[in-house]
Amino acid sequence: MSTAIFNLFPNLEPFHHDTHYEDLFLNQHWVLVNGITNKKAVYVFKDENTLHIIENENTSETSWCIDVKNTFSIETEDGKTTVKAYFKDDDILVLNRTQTDDCAVFINEDRCSEILNTLEDVQQFLHDKYKEKAASLISDHEFYYIEKAEEFGPFTVAQLSEKVENKKISIFCFVRDVNEHNYNKRLRIRDLLREL
């Protein structure tokens, strides 16, 4: 896979048969994000190497198979193609055409609370998903803050919020993650509170 795709989708996990095949991959409604502005296409990978592609309520049947580890062969109307499969979380699948930067991104519609019909639906799903994830990570994490050239902490965001409410510290104090060594990111307490 090219480094460009890893930059676009950091932390991709290669498809692993034991982990992904039955619970996350098979019989799921994978909405193709590429081209959703023109038409919605849903891919359903079935057992016994059958692939259903649903477009505008028409279903075509074709084939797919696992060649080795996370490498698949897929037969479509455009011909046979070989792809490497990766997961970004449990509900985003990336199929990268081998030895190219071409990739198809899919979202598991079965795991969405809303139906994905448009690019705006996809954007809203991703926004909600990652905002919730970021808020969860931020609220559970600890930070140091600096005030009048003195460092304090570490504190959770809830503890920092309480200090701000009690006027013990300013909302404009710089903070740093416990894993960082300086305040170069120029992050303030108010920035953390906005994300919650």
Rank of each mutant, 00 (worst) to 15 (best):
Q99C: 00
T100M: 01
T100Y: 04
D101G: 02
D101Q: 04
D101L: 01
D101A: 03
D102H: 03
D102L: 05
D102R: 04
D102S: 03
C103N: 14
C103Y: 12
A104V: 01
A104L: 11
A104H: 13
A104M: 12
V105N: 04
V105R: 02
V105C: 08
F106W: 07
F106K: 01
I107Q: 11
I107S: 10
I107T: 10
I107E: 10
I107W: 10
N108T: 00
N108E: 05
N108M: 02
E109A: 06
E109Q: 15
E109I: 01
D110F: 01
D110C: 08
R111A: 12
R111N: 08
R111T: 04
R111I: 00
C112A: 13
C112W: 09
S113N: 14
S113W: 04
S113A: 04
S113C: 09
E114T: 15
I115R: 15
I115G: 06
L116T: 00
L116E: 11
L116P: 08
L116C: 07
N117H: 15
N117I: 00
T118W: 11
T118H: 11
T118P: 11
L119F: 14
E120C: 03
E120T: 11
E120Y: 08
E120R: 09
E120K: 13
E120N: 09
D121Y: 06
D121M: 07
D121H: 11
V122I: 14
V122F: 14
Q123I: 02
Q123A: 12
Q123K: 08
Q124C: 04
Q124R: 13
Q124S: 10
Q124K: 14
F125G: 01
F125L: 05
F125A: 02
F125K: 07
F125Y: 15
L126E: 09
L126Q: 10
L126N: 07
L126V: 09
H127P: 00
H127R: 13
D128E: 09
K129F: 06
K129C: 02
K129Y: 10
Y130I: 02
Y130Q: 00
Y130H: 11
E132T: 15
E132M: 05
E132W: 02
K133S: 09
K133I: 06
K133C: 04
A134Y: 05
A134E: 10
A134H: 05
A135K: 11
A135L: 02
A135D: 08
S136N: 13
S136C: 03
L137W: 06
L137G: 05
L137R: 10
L137Q: 13
I138M: 05
I138Y: 03
I138L: 07
I138N: 04
I138F: 02
S139D: 09
S139R: 12
S139P: 00
S139V: 03
S139K: 12
D140E: 14
D140F: 06
D140P: 00
H141V: 00
H141C: 05
H141A: 12
H141F: 01
E142R: 14
E142H: 13
F143D: 05
F143P: 04
Y144E: 04
Y145I: 06
Y145R: 08
Y145F: 11
Y145C: 03
I146A: 03
I146R: 13
I146L: 07
E147N: 13
